[in-house]
Nucleic acid binder design. Structure first.
Lengths: 396, 396
DNA sequence: AGGGCTTTGTCCTGTAACTGGAAAAAGTGG
DNA sequence: CCACTTTTTCCAGTTACAGGACAAAGCCCT
C-alpha cells in the first residue's frame, strides 16, 4: 500500500528528482552545484520533497574538509517495473528509483498469442518478482512492444508482426491491473533510452539505436529526447527497400531490408544453405535441431564456417547500406547496434562500419562511433523504467 | 543610426515579440488570450517593450462591442535582411518585423568565385535595397549558403560545391560589414523555415523540406525547430546511394542521388539525349543555346516531348525512392518539395508521390501530404529573416 | 586542547514577479 | 439616458527568489 502518490510540485523539484536518479545520492551543496538556484530556495524545495516522502535524508557523508553533509536520496522503497515484450520472448525487471535493475526474468512467448495471453504472463512474471521480495508494490511501469505505438494513448497501431494488438488499450489495461501509472512505447525507443541512461549513449544528444532482432528497427534520439514521428512509426527502417524486386516481405512489398536481413531472414537463409549443402557446419546443426536460428549462424561463424560468415557479412553490408543513408540524413553523434542478432558480433559490426564509412561523406562520419550496445537485454527494461520515471519525475 | 539595440529582457517579452511577428498587430487583450499571464503582468511587460521602442502603440482598433483597443505592433522601422546564396545566383530581400518581403532582388553569381567576390555582390545588392528607400539600416541579417555550416560559429565546413569557403568566417565578416547581428545557415534549412513561417508548412511540427536545385538537400524540422545534426550536415541526402556502381559523383563515390538527378544531372542528361538524337525538342533548344538547363527540360516536357518527360519521371522515381526511405525513418507530417527544379511541376511530383506511397508503410503515408513549396524563391530569404528574428526575439 | 580555516546548512530580510479583484475608461444598442 | 460589453488601469496581497549573515561541524596545525 506504500505507493508513490506524490508528484513533484514544480519544475525545480522535478529537476532535483532527476538529478538524484541519474547522479545517485547527493548533498544539498552538491545539488546546488548542478541546479541554478540559490541555496535558500534549494533548501526549501528539498525540504518539501522530504515532506512528501519522495526523497529521504539518511546519514551523513564523509567530511570533505569541513562540516559533513547530509545524504539526500530518492525514497529507497520506490520500485519501477520494466517490461520488454519482444516477438518471441518477454523480459520483465524491477528497478529502484535510480533505475538499477534489482531483478530480471526472461521467458519465451510468442507475441502473436495476442495481448490477453501475453499480459497474463507479464502479470505472472511481475508477481514472481514481487514474491521474491524485490518489491512490495510498483510505483510505475514502462512497457515496450515490438511495433508502432500511438504514444499519448499507449495503444499499438497497425503493428505488422502483432496481429490482434491493433488498437488494444495496453496502457489502460495494464494500468488497471498493476494499479500504477503505465507508459507504452516501441521496444526500440526503450532500448535507445536504456543505452542513453546507463549504456554507451550517455552524454550523447543526437544518436541512432539500431535494433536487429526478429525484425529491424531504429530508435531516434534528438536533443536527448526520443523522437517518435507524427504517427508513432518513426524509426521503422525494416521496410526500406534495399533491392528492387528483391525478396518478398511480409509487408507485401519486395526487397525490404527486413526481408533480406533480420533474425528471421538469417535463420531462413541458413536453413536454405544447410539444405543445399553449402555449409556442413550449419547442416549438422540443422539435423540436430530441425531448425536454425541466428544463434546457430553465430556459432557456425565462430567455428570458421565460410557460408555462415558470408551470410553475416552480406547482411551487414545491406544493413550498413541503409545506415549509411540514415547517417547522411540525420548526422548523428553515435550509432548503437543492439538486439538479439548482436551475438553475431564483430563480423557484423565490421561489415556495417565498412559500408557506412565508405558511403557517407567524411563530415558526417569523421567522428562517428558505430558501436555495439553494452546493456544487452537490460537495455529494454532499463529504458522502460526510465520512460516511466521521466514521466513521474515531471511536474504533475 | 536607428538600430535595434534593445533585446527582450525575459522570456515573456520574447514570447510577445514572436506573437506580434507571427500574428501581426494585436491588442493587449488579444495578446492575453495567447499567453499564459495575468492581464496586470502582461500590461507591465508590454509597457516595458514600449519603453524600449521594440513595439509601438499606434491608433485604436474598431470596437468589438465595448471599449476600443490599442493596436500594439512591432516597431515599423525594424528591417531584416535575408540573403540566399545559391550555387548559381544570389537572392537578397528586405523584410519588416513581420517578415513580409518589402523588396527582393536576384542576380546570377557563381558561388565558386569565392566568398570575397560573393560578399562584394551581396553588399552591393543590400546597398541597392537601402538606396531604394526600403530600409535605413538593417537590424539583423540571415545568410543561407549551399553547404553544411557549423551553426554556432556561422562558418561553412567542408562544402563540396563551394571550394574556397571552407572555414571562412562568414558570420563574423558579414556582421562587421553590415553592422548588425548575422546568423548563417544551410540554404535548405532556411527554405524549411520560410515554408514554416509563411508557406505550406504552417502549423506542422515535424516535416521534411526537399530542395532540388543544382544539388539536392533536405531541411529537417523536429518539433518546430530546425535539426542540424551533430556537425551541421544533417539533411545532406544528395549523396545517398541510389544505384550501386551508378554514375560517378563529384564527391568521389558512385551512384549518389545527386549524380543521377539534380539540376546539374538533368541538364547533363538532356544534352546527352539531344546529341544522341533521342529528342528533337531538346536538340532544337540545344542548338539554339549551346547548352541546356533544367528549364529547357521543363519546357520540352510541357511541349509533350517524351524523352524530356522520361527524364523527369526517372529522376522523380529516384528521388521518390530516397524520400520513401526518409519517410519510413522519420515519419514526417508533411513533405515539401522545393528548389529550382520544381519548375518540372506535376510530372515530378507525381513520380515522387507514386514511389513514396508504394514503398513506405501505410501508417507513415496514410495521412502524409507531399506538396510543392508555395513560396518559391521567397522561401529562402523569408527563412533567413525568420532565423535572425528568432534569434533577436529571444532573451538576451 | 585550542585557534584558524573550510565546508555545509539554516535563517532572515529585501526585492522582484505575479495574481486577481475592483474600478475606470470607452464603446454599443435600445 | 441606461444597461451592458470590452478593454485597460490600478492596487493590494502572495509567492518566488537571491544573497548575506551566521551557526554547525568538521579538518589540520601548533
Amino acid at each position: 500500500m506504500r505507493r508513490m502518490t506524490a508528484r513533484p510540485a514544480n519544475a525545480h523539484q522535478a529537476r532535483l528528482l532527476r538529478l538524484l536518479r541519474d547522479g545517485g545520492p547527493n548533498s544539498r551543496a552538491q545539488l546546488g552545484d548542478q541546479i541554478d538556484l540559490s541555496r535558500s530556495k534549494l533548501a526549501v524545495e528539498v525540504d518539501r520533497l522530504l515532506e512528501t516522502g519522495l526523497v529521504v535524508a539518511d546519514g551523513l557523508a564523509a567530511s570533505r574538509g569541513g562540516r559533513r553533509s547530509h545524504n539526500i536520496r530518492l525514497a529507497p522503497a520506490l520500485r519501477f517495473l520494466g517490461v520488454d515484450i519482444g516477438a518471441t520472448s518477454i523480459d520483465v525487471a524491477v528497478t529502484n528509483a535510480e533505475l538499477e535493475v534489482l531483478g530480471h526474468i526472461n521467458q519465451p512467448m510468442d507475441v502473436r498469442e495476442g495481448p490477453v495471453a501475453v499480459f497474463e504472463q507479464v502479470l505472472a512474471m511481475a508477481a514472481k518478482l514481487k514474491a521474491s521480495g524485490l518489491a512490495e508494490e510498483f510505483d510505475g511501469a514502462g512497457i515496450g512492444v515490438p511495433g508502432p505505438v500511438r504514444f499519448p494513448e499507449g495503444v499499438p497501431v497497425a503493428p505488422p508482426i502483432m496481429p490482434g494488438w491493433d488498437g488494444f488499450p495496453v496502457r489502460e489495461a495494464l494500468s488497471q491491473e498493476l494499479g500504477c501509472p503505465v507508459l507504452v512505447d516501441n521496444d526500440v525507443n526503450l532500448m535507445a533510452m536504456g543505452e542513453q541512461h546507463a549504456g554507451v549513449a550517455r552524454s550523447v544528444g543526437d544518436f541512432l539505436c539500431i535494433k536487429i532482432g526478429t525484425g529491424i528497427g531504429c530508435g531516434i534520439v534528438v536533443g536527448g529526447q526520443v523522437y517518435r514521428g507524427t504517427t508513432g512509426s518513426a524509426g521503422d527502417i525494416g521496410h526500406i527497400q534495399v533491392e528492387p524486386d528483391g525478396r518478398a516481405c511480409a509487408c507485401g512489398n519486395r526487397g525490404c531490408l527486413e526481408a533480406h536481413f533480420s533474425g528471421a531472414a538469417l535463420a531462413r537463409d541458413a536453413e536454405e544453405a544447410a539444405q543445399q549443402g553449402r555449409s556442413p557446419e550449419l547442416a549438422t546443426r540443422f539435423e540436430a535441431a530441425g531448425r536454425l536460428t541466428a544463434a546457430d549462424v553465430a556459432a557456425a561463424a565462430a567455428a570458421g564456417d565460410a557460408t555462415a560468415l558470408g551470410l553475416i557479412r552480406e547482411g551487414g553490408n545491406r544493413t550498413g547500406q541503409v545506415i549509411a543513408g540514415l547517417v547522411s540524413f540525420f548526422n548523428p553523434g553515435l550509432v548503437v547496434i543492439g538486439g538479439g542478432v548482436t551475438g553475431l558480433g564483430h563480423t557484423l559490426l565490421a561489415a556495417i562500419r565498412t559500408q557506412v564509412y565508405r558511403q557517407s561523406l567524411p563530415l558526417a562520419t569523421g567522428n562517428l562511433p558505430i558501436v555495439l550496445g553494452e546493456l544487452g537485454p537490460a537495455a529494454g527494461v532499463t529504458g522502460a523504467a526510465r520512460l516511466i520515471s521521466d514521466h513521474l519525475f515531471s511536474p504533475a
